[in-house]
Amino acid sequence: MDGNHTAEHDEKFTRDEKFTRFVISVRPGLRRSAYLLCGDWHEADDLVQNTLLAVLRHWDRLRWPEVAFGYARTTMYRIFVSDRRHARWRLESVRAEVPDRPAGGSGETNIADRELLLAALRELPPRQRAALTLRYFEDLDVARTAEILECEPSTIRSQTTRALATMRLVMSKYR
């Protein structure tokens, strides 16, 4: 999210214009996080759309951009966890093959590492994946992560430990 959205600066914009500016500013970040959660761009874009719809529904009450951004992020993680819980998904069926590590130069190595990360993330249950993404991608502390995922900090700690163990196992297997 950019830092140019000040309340004073926003005064000249209508409610609709403010929402459009908000979408432009937060969409890239939400898409990136959503992709780490979903592991698929199509599903990630659906998740972002549902998230922004929830924000639009409450837009009149979200008076400050920082509040709106926090609301959007929390909403996206909760929608993700809730959807996966209810659908129990085709998660298993869409799981991609873990790629072999290429023998090429450093550029190729980076791509393989990235694919390996995404493949290993897909091995995690949704809540563990969400906890890991919040802690290490969004760089949030345990307390804030627990607040977003509506659980105790101790639960986040144990989920993170289990998730890291799974990631270590998957990544070492393919190296």
Partner: peptide, 11 residues
């Protein structure tokens, strides 16, 4: 943890 942070940064 460190490795995952690096991979996230790369992503």
């Amino acid at each position: 943890e460190r490795e995952i942070r690096e991979l996230y940064r790369d992503f």
